[in-house]
Design a protein around this nucleic acid. Structure first.
Length: 883
RNA sequence: GGGCGAUUAGCUCAGGGGGAGAGCACUUCCUUGACACGGAAGGGGUCGCAGGUUCAAAUCCUGCAUCGCCCACCA
C-alpha cells in the first residue's frame, strides 16, 4: 500500500468503488425478522429530469441517513425510481413532435403514448445514472416507475376505493385551466405572481332609470370577461345601491339584459362597490351566480380564444379580445376610468402560461375526511417535521384544505378508470375494463382523461413496496423512517402521502420524520434556473471536486433555518479535506512496519487524548445525525480529523514512530490505525468513496474488517465513551499552549524551524510534574533543543518572552530580540488581559451575581480571574525586566 | 391581508443567557521524508437599530428597518 498516489484523484477511484458496491450486492436489503428495519423512499425525480442542486443536496442527505443505518446493522432499503411526470413529459414529447411538424392529435393517442414510453426508455435512466455518480446507495435492482403495471394497479385501486367510498366525485366547477397545456390543474399547481395592471371602471346602463339613476359603474381587472357577465352584484347594506337591487342592466357591447343582485361577498369599499359577475370565469362570481341563479355563459375556448358566446369577438385571443373590448367600450363612452392596479395572476407551474379560471366538468377528491387523521398524526407527534416550524405550514394548509381536482386532459398518465354507458347513463369506476354495461348491456366507453401525476405520486411510500398486494416488503418496511424533500412539494406531495398512506394502511403513517431541507440558491441568492443559465450543474461540481467533495461541501452548508446561498468555496475545502484524509491515511499506512493488529493500548497522554477526542466525536456525530443537523455534524468531523488527528496527533506520534522503542511504536501504530478506522467509519456516510478506498487497505483485525466500509460496523459511541479522559485533554491543552507560544516567538523573529531553540519555562511548583512528563512532546513539536522547567527560573538575557496562562516562557535569542517590540507586544497583551480581568472583577464584586448566578459559573469566573491575575503578574515581571 | 425566516469578520455562514467562531479571502514565514488540495504565525467584528426582561443579552421579549419566502376567492 505504499503505492498510494500523493494526491487523491476522485475520478480514478469512484467508478471502481461504485462497481464494487454493486458487485457486493450491498444496495439491496434483506428482510430479517425480529430486527428493526430502516427505509427511505426517494422523492422520485421526473423521468424528464436531470440532476440539479436540489437533488444533489436532498439525495446526499438521504444517503447519509441510509448509509449510517446500514452500518448500524439495520436491514436498510432506499427505494429508488422515477415519476412519469404527466405534463412535463407530455410537453417534452410534444416539443419533439412539433420539431417534426406534428401535433399529438396528428399521431393519435396510442402512438403518442408509445412515443412517451420511447422517451422514457431513452432518457429515464439519465438521472438514475447521475445518482450513481453521486454514490447514492439506492436499491437499484428494484427500480420503480409510477407507470409500472403493478404501480398502475395500485393507482387504480385507490381511485376505485375512493370512488366507491364517495370520496371521488365529478362536478362542473371553476377550475384552473392552462390554455397552453390544454388541461385542468389543481389549485396548488398554480403559481401566483403580482403583476402591474389596471383596474378599469365600466359604465353599465340601466334598462330604465331608477330614482333618476340611469347607470352603474363596475370595476374589473379582466374587461374581456364582461362578454360573459350575467349579473351585477352590490352589497345588501350599501345605501348607494339599495334602490337598484332588482333593476335590470343592459350589458354594453352584448345587449344582454342582466339583473342587479345583492350579495354579501361584495366589498362596498373596493372600486365602485358594484361588481360585474361572470360565473363561468371566476370562482367568486361562480358562487354569486349559484346563489342568485344566474346563467353561466362560457365565453372562452380551451385555447383561450373567445368562443361563439362572445358574439363578434369570437375567435380572438384573450388578450386581443381585451384590447378590442376596451376600445369598443371607450368608443361608446362606457370606459369611464382606468386606474393603475397591482394584482396577483396565476401561472401554470409547468409552462408559466397565465391560467384561466374556467368552468369545466372535472373529477375531484373530497379532502376534508382524508385530512382529519393526517392532521392528528402530526399533532400527536407520530409524524415529525424537521425543522419543527414546518408543522405550522402543514396545519394551516390542511385546516383549510379544499377539494382536489384530479382529472387532467392529457394522454400521458394513469387513465381514469371510469366507464360510461351512454344508453342508461351509468358511470362506474372499475378495476377491470368494462366493455358492456352491467346494467343494460350497451357498449361502454372509458373516461378520456388521466389522473394528476400527484395522484399516483402520493402512493409512493407503499405502492413501491408492492401494495395493494400483501407483500413482505410492505409488512416489513412500511412505515418508512425518513422522508427528505424540498419545501415546495410539502402540499403537492408530502401532505397527500400522509393522507393516502394512512387511509390505505389502517391508519399507519407513511414516514416518521420529514426533513424539509434548505433550498439551494445561487451565489446571488436567486433561484437557480436552467433557462436563465443561473444554475450550477452538480455533474460539473463532481468533475471539479469529486463526488465526496460535492457531498461534504453541501453538508457543510445545511443549517436548520437558512436557505443556502451556494458557496462553492465549501466544496473546495471539502475536496481539500478528502485529500487531507487521503494523505493522513497514506502517512499511517507508510508507517506500518512491524505492525500487528490489535486493540489500542494507550501508552501516553497523547494516545489517551486522541482517543478521548474520538469518543467525543462519535457521540457528537450520533447526536447530530439523530437530529438531522448535517452542517454541525460535518463541521465536527472536519475539525476532529484535520485539527486534532492530523495537526496534533500525527505530529505528536512521529517521534515514537521513528524511535527505537518497539513497544512504543506498536502502541502509537495501534492508536493511529484505530482512530483512523473509526474516523473513516464516521465519515463514510458523507464521503463514501474516499473513505472506502482507504479503509479497504487498513491492516485491521479480522473481527474488525468487512468486505467494504459500506457494510462495516458503525462505531458504538457508548463503547468509545470509555476512552473519555479529561485529564489527558487538559495535559495536551497545556502542551499546545506552550508549543504555540514558542512557535509564535519563532515567527516573530523569523527563526527557522530547523534551528533548535533553548527554552526555559517558569512554572508553578504544582504543575512541574505534569509539564516535565510532556516535555518531549513540546521539544519535538516546537523544535526545542534544551527545555528547562523551574519554579524559580531567571530570565536569561537577550530572551524573547511569551506567556501561556500562568507560565513564563523564555527563549534566548542572542542578538535577535527587539526589546522595544517585545515591550509593545507584551504591553498590548497585558492590556487585553487587564480589560478582561476588570470585567470579571466587576462581575465578581456584584452581589446580585454572587447570589443568583449558578455556582459553577461563579467558580469558573473566579478561576479565570485568578488565571488572569497570575498572567498579568507574569507579564509585569517581564515588562520590568525589559525596561 | 395573514404567516415564516434572515440581519454576526471583506465574502459565505455557524453559534444561541455567563470567555465573539469556521471556511474562503488577506499579511508574514516555511518546498522538513503524509499532504503546497500543505504547514506555522498573524490582522480583521460596538453580533441591523431602539427599548425591555435579567446579577448577566450577540443569544430571551417587544417595536422598527431592510431583505427573502409562503399562504389568501386583492372585482
Amino acid at each position: 500500500m505504499s503505492e498510494m498516489p500523493k494526491a487523491y484523484d476522485p475520478k480514478a477511484v469512484e467508478g471502481a468503488i461504485f462497481a464494487s458496491w454493486q458487485e457486493g450486492g450491498y444496495f439491496s436489503a434483506q428482510i430479517v425478522e425480529g430486527v428493526e428495519p430502516y427505509s427511505v423512499v426517494i422523492p422520485p425525480p421526473n423521468v424528464t429530469g436531470s440532476l440539479h442542486m436540489g437533488h444533489a443536496l436532498n439525495n446526499t442527505i438521504q444517503d447519509v441517513v441510509i448509509r449510517r443505518s446500514r452500518m448500524a446493522g439495520r436491514p436498510t432499503v432506499w427505494v429508488v425510481g422515477t415519476d412519469h411526470a404527466g405534463i412535463a413529459t407530455q410537453n417534452k414529447v410534444e416539443q419533439k413532435l412539433a420539431a417534426e411538424g406534428f401535433s399529438r392529435h396528428d399521431v393519435g393517442r396510442e402512438a403518442f403514448i408509445e412515443a412517451c414510453w420511447d422517451w422514457r426508455r431513452k432518457y429515464g435512466g439519465t438521472i438514475i445514472g447521475q445518482l450513481k455518480a453521486m454514490g447514492c446507495s439506492c436499491d437499484y435492482d428494484n427500480e420503480r416507475f409510477t407507470m409500472d403495471p403493478s404501480y398502475a394497479h395500485a393507482v387504480r385501486k385507490v381511485f376505485v376505493d375512493w370512488f366507491e367510498a364517495g370520496l371521488i366525485y365529478r362536478g362542473m366547477r371553476i377550475i384552473n385551466w392552462c390554455p397552453r397545456c390544454a388541461t385542468a390543474l389543481s389549485d396548488i399547481e398554480v403559481e401566483h405572481e403580482d403583476v402591474d395592471s389596471h383596474l378599469w371602471h365600466l359604465r353599465y346602463p340601466l334598462k330604465e332609470p331608477v330614482d333618476g339613476i340611469d347607470h352603474v359603474i363596475v370595476a374589473t381587472t379582466r374587461p374581456e370577461t364582461m362578454l360573459g357577465d350575467t349579473c351585477v352584484a352590490v352589497h345588501p347594506d350599501d345605501a348607494r345601491y339599495s334602490a337598484l337591487v332588482g333593476a335590470t342592466v343592459v350589458l354594453p357591447l352584448m345587449g344582454r339584459e342582466i339583473p342587479i343582485v345583492a350579495d354579501d361577498y361584495v366589498d362596498p369599499a373596493f372600486g365602485s362597490g358594484a361588481v360585474k359577475v361572470t360565473p363561468a370565469h371566476d370562482p367568486n362570481d361562480f358562487d354569486i351566480g349559484e346563489r342568485h341563479d344566474c346563467a353561466k355563459i362560457n365565453i372562452m375556448n380551451a385555447d383561450a380564444t373567445i368562443s361563439a358566446e362572445g358574439g363578434v369577438y369570437a375567435g380572438l385571443d384573450r388578450y386581443e379580445a381585451r384590447k378590442r373590448v376596451l376600445a369598443d367600450l371607450e368608443e361608446i363612452g362606457a370606459l369611464v376610468k382606468t386606474d393603475e392596479h397591482v394584482h396577483s395572476v396565476g401561472h401554470c407551474y409547468r409552462c408559466h402560461t397565465v391560467i384561466e379560471p374556467w368552468l369545466s366538468d372535472q373529477w375531484f377528491v373530497d379532502m376534508k375526511p382524508l385530512a382529519a387523521p393526517a392532521i392528528e398524526a402530526v399533532h400527536d407527534g407520530r409524524v415529525k417535521f424537521h425543522p419543527k416550524r414546518w408543522e405550522n405550514v402543514y396545519f394551516h394548509w390542511m385546516d383549510n384544505i379544499r377539494d382536489w381536482c384530479i382529472s387532467r386532459q392529457l394522454w400521458w398518465g394513469h387513465r381514469i378508470p371510469v366507464f360510461y354507458c351512454d344508453t342508461c347513463k351509468l358511470a362506474v369506476a372499475s378495476m377491470d375494463d368494462l366493455i358492456a354495461c352491467p346494467t343494460c348491456g350497451a357498449a361502454m366507453r372509458q373516461d378520456e382523461d388521466v389522473l394528476d401525476t400527484w395522484f399516483s405520486s402520493q402512493l409512493w411510500p407503499f405502492a413501491t413496496l408492492g401494495w395493494p398486494e400483501p407483500t413482505p416488503e410492505v409488512a416489513y418496511f412500511y412505515p418508512t423512517n425518513v422522508l427528505s424533500t424540498a419545501r415546495d412539494i410539502l402540499f403537492l406531495w408530502v401532505a397527500r402521502m400522509v393522507m393516502s398512506g394512512m387511509y390505505f394502511n389502517d391508519g399507519q403513517i407513511p414516514f416518521e420524520d420529514v426533513i424539509i431541507h434548505p433550498t439551494v440558491f445561487n451565489a446571488e441568492g436567486k433561484r437557480m434556473s436552467k433557462s436563465l443559465g443561473t444554475g450550477v450543474d452538480p455533474l460539473d461540481l463532481m468533475e471539479h471536486y469529486g463526488a465526496d467533495g460535492m457531498r461534504f461541501g453541501l453538508m457543510l452548508q445545511v443549517t436548520g433555518s437558512q436557505d443556502i446561498k451556494f458557496a462553492e468555496d465549501k466544496l473546495l475545502s471539502s475536496r481539500n479535506f478528502a485529500n487531507k484524509i487521503w494523505n493522513a491515511s497514506r502517512f499511517v499506512l507508510m508507517n506500518m512496519d512491524g505492525y500487528e493488529p490489535g486493540a489500542p493500548e494507550p501508552q501516553t497522554v497523547a494516545d489517551r487524548w486522541i482517543l478521548s477526542r474520538l469518543a467525543d466525536l462519535s457521540a457528537r456525530v450520533d447526536e447530530g445525525l439523530d437530529t438531522y443537523e448535517f452542517g454541525e455534524t460535518a463541521r465536527a468531523l472536519y475539525d476532529f480529523f484535520w485539527n486534532e488527528y492530523c495537526d496534533w496527533y500525527i505530529e505528536l506520534a512521529k517521534d515514537r514512530l521513528n524511535g527505537g522503542d518497539a513497544k512504543q511504536r506498536l502502541a502509537v501504530q495501534r492508536t493511529l490505525v484505530f482512530v483512523l478506522d473509526r474516523a473513516l467509519r464516521l465519515l463514510h456516510p458523507m464521503m463514501p468513496f474516499v473513505t472506502d478506498e482507504i479503509w479497504k487497505n487498513l491492516p485491521l483485525d479480522a473481527a474488525e474488517t468487512a468486505p467494504s466500509l459500506m457494510i462495516a460496523e458503525w462505531p458504538d459511541a457508548s463503547a468509545l465513551a470509555e476512552f473519555a479522559d479529561p485529564g489527558a485533554e487538559k495535559s495536551i491543552a497545556a502542551v499546545q499552549d506552550i508549543v504555540v507560544a514558542i512557535r509564535a516567538v519563532r515567527a516573530r523573529y523569523g527563526v527557522s524551524p530547523r534551528v533548535p531553540l533553548d527554552v526555559v519555562v517558569k512554572a508553578p511548583e504544582h504543575e512541574l510534574l505534569l509539564l516535565e512528563g510532556e516535555s518531549g512532546l513540546v521539544r519535538s513539536l516546537a523544535g526545542v533543543g534544551s527545555l528547562t522547567f523551574s519554579p524559580t527560573a531567571e530570565k536569561p538575557s537577550h530572551s524573547a518572552v511569551a506567556v501561556a496562562g500562568n507560565l513564563e516562557i523564555y527563549v534566548p535569542l542572542e542578538g535577535l530580540v527587539d526589546f522595544d517590540a517585545e515591550r509593545e507586544r507584551l504591553g498590548k497583551e497585558r492590556e487585553k488581559a487587564a480589560t478582561e480581568l476588570g470585567r470579571l472583577d466587576k462581575k465578581l464584586g456584584n452581589e446580585g451575581f454572587l447570589a443568583k448566578a449558578a455556582p459553577e459559573i461563579v467558580e469558573k469566573d473566579r478561576a479565570r480571574a485568578a488565571e488572569l491575575t497570575e498572567g498579568i503578574a507574569v507579564m509585569d515581571t517581564q515588562l520590568a525586566e525589559l525596561a
